[in-house]
Design a protein around this nucleic acid. Structure first.
Lengths: 127, 127
DNA sequence: GTAGAAGTTAACGTCGGTGTCAGATTCAAG
DNA sequence: CTTGAATCTGACACCGACGTTAACTTCTAC
């Protein structure tokens, strides 16, 4: 499939897809005229890349990580080096801390929302 | 207290503290010579600001939210407007989605780490 | 009063994934 | 062929919290 269709199916811009290729995250074949030609599996891969970016990983880390992820069809395809394992462990811990902070902030927001609802909303406290 | 001590006690740079003031997030008195003078409660406030930033909120949203948060000593001090409640609700939902993505990515990392550990680590699979 | 630590304002730099525009080329359909 | 949609490369812009430097002023302790 070509870049336009991949963009539509993943919800990722064409600009980003080209960037992913430039960063070595996403391989693409080429037609005679030089247009990119993606295999079906590119869809899953792009989605994974987005998830990892959303988790705050840098493109270089993602590039090292991707070959070690179990493909939708088959096995792990590559084993993480000790160096990579160390880096990924640090990332995982960072993500854990971030999740805790997020839970905290979400509770803060909920409390403000609830307080406002009690003051303005349904219960209509009369006094 | 002055800016240096506040920075030390919160782990936030002086640069950031001045930025917070500029964005209307953190009020400070002034000495005769123009140096900032913070009250004790500034410590808690700075920590909250950091948490909200970590959750991906923008300074303008934090500025609107802060007065509606229950202070460490007393009551809510301000009630969120309907507009603000709507915005905060959107933020809360975004945070929820982000947490789900983070959990997903963390599991991916864990799986790669575990796979590498099984291949290289303690169990030492002999063959 | 004086040296050195600490504080002030102002301005510019950073990072990195992505938006966007320009100009040229390729593809698909009539 | 020709035309219009799609794609290509390359370059510049952006966001936004914060780092960093520069040139000056104020505080503090002796």
């Amino acid at each position: 499939m070509r870049i336009g269709e991949l963009a539509r199916r993943t919800g990722v811009s064409e600009r980003s897809l080209r960037y992913y290729e430039q960063q070595g995250l996403l391989a693409a074949g080429r037609t005679g005229g030089g247009h990119r030609d993606y295999p079906e599996r590119a869809v899953d891969r792009v989605i994974r890349i987005q998830e990892l970016f959303a988790a705050g990983l840098h493109s270089k880390t993602v590039a090292r990580l991707l070959p070690c992820m179990r493909d939708s069809d088959g096995g792990p395809s590559a084993i993480a080096s000790p160096r990579l394992v160390a880096d990924l462990t640090a990332e995982r811990d960072r993500i854990d801390r971030m999740m805790a902070e997020l839970a905290n902030s979400r509770d803060v927001l909920d409390q403000v929302i609830t307080t406002a609802a009690e003051a303005t909303g349904p219960p209509t406290p009369r006094q």
